[in-house]
């Protein structure tokens, strides 16, 4: 009885928190979730947020970890089909090779929602795909910097992600779009920091030496928060103050960047939300209960966080999510 009360309370809270219309929507539905694995902190956070959101809505979530292998994902999806689940969520590990298994799901009349990454397959094989817009993430970061700098002359250095990776290409493009036409803002140096803290620190050290001890750098833009955390240490080692002498803007919104914001050492981050499941469940609710087909591509919000957005609270809230 007690458990039922707790569940009911959870569902009630979820209804209040999310959207009242969906309060009862997916209660008791069985949904399979094939996750890629846990290769990064963000991925771990996505898993724990998905489980939490499912519990809030009273969904019976069947979780399968594919350990970075497509064959495991295909096996998991076949398993979900055999169990006759109501819907399937997939975070696809690669873009190709999904036609066969998705056709099987379609024939079994089970809607499939793609999370976080797209695939190369006919669009009628899946209900919708929920993902972030990486170009937009870069643009939001750039627009923040344009607003923060105003008319001042500002030389920006950029820490790129792994060369050739899609987040690195898209986040660079979006940032450049935001800076286009602003004569006072120029990207003077751009190098790859491989999305890691230590490379971010090493590259920033080099930039500082090459730009007159950092005096010619007004802002650093990092394609992810980890590189920004490394850059912040490099700036401090050079005797400068990150956040004041050199502005720091990055993408992802992991807990440690909020800790840096609390210390006044980071200025802005753009969230890559780990809550891809929330919009997916909304879409499934509308489809299963009202029969309305959602848009084919649902873009998650790329929210900007600055020290004005209660960084301590954000840090505490995210710390337990598995980042």
């Amino acid at each position: 009885m007690k458990i039922f009360n707790t569940l009911a309370l959870g569902a009630g809270l979820a209804g209040l928190l999310m959207s009242a219309a969906y309060a009862e929507g997916l209660q008791g539905k069985v949904i399979g979730f094939s996750q890629i694995g846990s290769e990064s902190g963000w991925r771990a956070a996505e898993t724990s947020v998905t489980k939490a959101v499912a519990a809030e809505r009273g969904i019976d979530l069947k979780f399968a970890d594919a350990q970075q292998k497509q064959e495991n994902q295909i096996k998991a999806i076949r398993g979900f089909i055999a169990q006759g689940v109501d819907a399937i969520l997939v975070a696809p590990v690669v873009a190709t090779g999904w036609e066969e298994v998705l056709t099987e799901a379609k024939e079994a009349n089970i809607p499939v929602v793609l999370l976080d990454r797209g695939i190369e397959a006919p669009e009628d094989l899946y209900l919708t795909s929920v993902a972030s817009d990486q170009v937009k993430e870069g643009r939001v970061a750039g627009e923040w910097l344009v607003g923060a700098v105003g008319d001042k002359q500002c030389n920006v250095v950029e820490l790129q992600g792994t060369v050739g990776s899609s987040p690195a290409i898209n986040r660079k493009q979006g940032f450049e779009e935001a800076l286009a036409g602003k004569a006072n803002l120029t990207i003077t140096r751009s190098q790859t920091g491989d999305f890691t803290r230590s490379k971010g620190k090493e590259v920033m050290e080099g930039f500082i030496k090459a730009e007159d001890g950092g005096k010619n750098i007004c802002a650093v833009y990092a394609h992810n928060d980890d590189m920004a955390v490394g850059a912040i240490q490099a700036i401090k080692d050079a005797g400068l103050k990150p956040g004041t002498d050199i502005l720091v803007v990055s993408i992802d919104a992991v807990p440690d960047i909020f800790a840096a914001m609390v210390a006044g050492e980071a200025n802005a981050t753009v969230e890559l939300t780990p809550n891809m499941a929330g919009p997916a469940f909304d879409a499934l609710d509308a489809y299963l209960n009202a029969g309305t087909a959602p848009e084919k591509f649902i873009i998650t919000e790329s929210r900007l966080y600055t020290p004005a957005d209660d960084p301590q609270g954000e840090y505490d809230r995210r710390k337990g999510l598995g980042y």
């Binding site: 060369v163 140096r189 751009s190 190098q191 790859t192 590259v203 080099g206 930039f207 030496k209 090459a210």
Partner: peptide, 15 residues
């Protein structure tokens, strides 16, 4: 070599 590449200003595709 690594440090040289970082301060040279080449684009990272050349590293």
């Amino acid at each position: 070599m690594n440090t040289g590449i970082l301060i040279s200003g080449f684009s990272p595709e050349f590293n």
